[in-house]
Amino acid sequence: MAPLVLHVTGARPNFPKAAPVLEALAAYPVEQLLVHTGQHYDDKMSDIFFRQLGIPKPDVNLGVGSGAHGAQTAKVMEALEELFTERRPDLVVVYGDVNSTVAAALVASKMGITFAHVEAGLRSFDMSMPEEINRLVTDRLSDLLLTTSPDAVAHLGNEGTAPEKIHLVGNPMIDTLLKNEARFDAAAARADVGIEGDYVVATLHRPGNVDDPEDVKALVAAMHAVADQAQVVIPLHPRGRARLEQAGFLDHPGMRVIDPLGYIEFMGLVRGAAAVVTDSGGVQEETTILGVPCLTLRPNTERPVTITDGTNQLVTREVLAERVREVLATGPLQQWPTPPLWDGHAGERIAKILARAVGAAEPVRA
Score class of each variant (00 low, 15 high):
279 D>P: 09
270 V>S: 04
176 T>L: 06
7 H>W: 10
144 L>H: 02
239 R>M: 05
288 T>I: 11
73 T>S: 09
218 A>W: 07
273 A>G: 06
272 G>D: 08
9 T>R: 12
205 H>F: 10
283 V>W: 03
244 L>N: 06
219 L>N: 10
18 A>E: 12
200 V>H: 07
362 E>W: 00
91 L>K: 04
278 T>S: 15
286 E>W: 06
190 R>Q: 14
129 M>C: 02
136 L>W: 00
269 L>V: 08
276 V>R: 06
95 Y>L: 03
149 S>W: 00
7 H>L: 14
222 A>K: 12
191 A>D: 13
145 L>R: 04
212 D>R: 15
153 V>T: 13
210 V>M: 08
27 A>Y: 01
163 P>Y: 10
96 G>W: 02
168 L>C: 02
293 P>F: 12
25 L>Q: 14
191 A>K: 14
229 Q>H: 09
178 L>I: 07
243 R>W: 02
201 V>K: 05
40 H>V: 13
149 S>K: 00
281 G>C: 01
40 H>D: 05
181 E>M: 14
31 E>G: 08
44 K>R: 14
317 R>V: 03
51 R>H: 12
325 R>K: 15
102 V>S: 02
230 A>H: 11
240 G>W: 03
28 Y>Q: 13
301 T>R: 10
257 V>D: 00
123 R>A: 00
309 D>R: 14
60 V>C: 06
35 V>N: 10
64 V>H: 09
225 A>V: 09
310 G>V: 09
165 K>S: 04
303 R>H: 07
279 D>G: 03
311 T>W: 11
232 V>H: 10
4 L>V: 15
254 G>T: 01
91 L>W: 06
194 G>I: 06
58 P>F: 11
141 L>K: 01
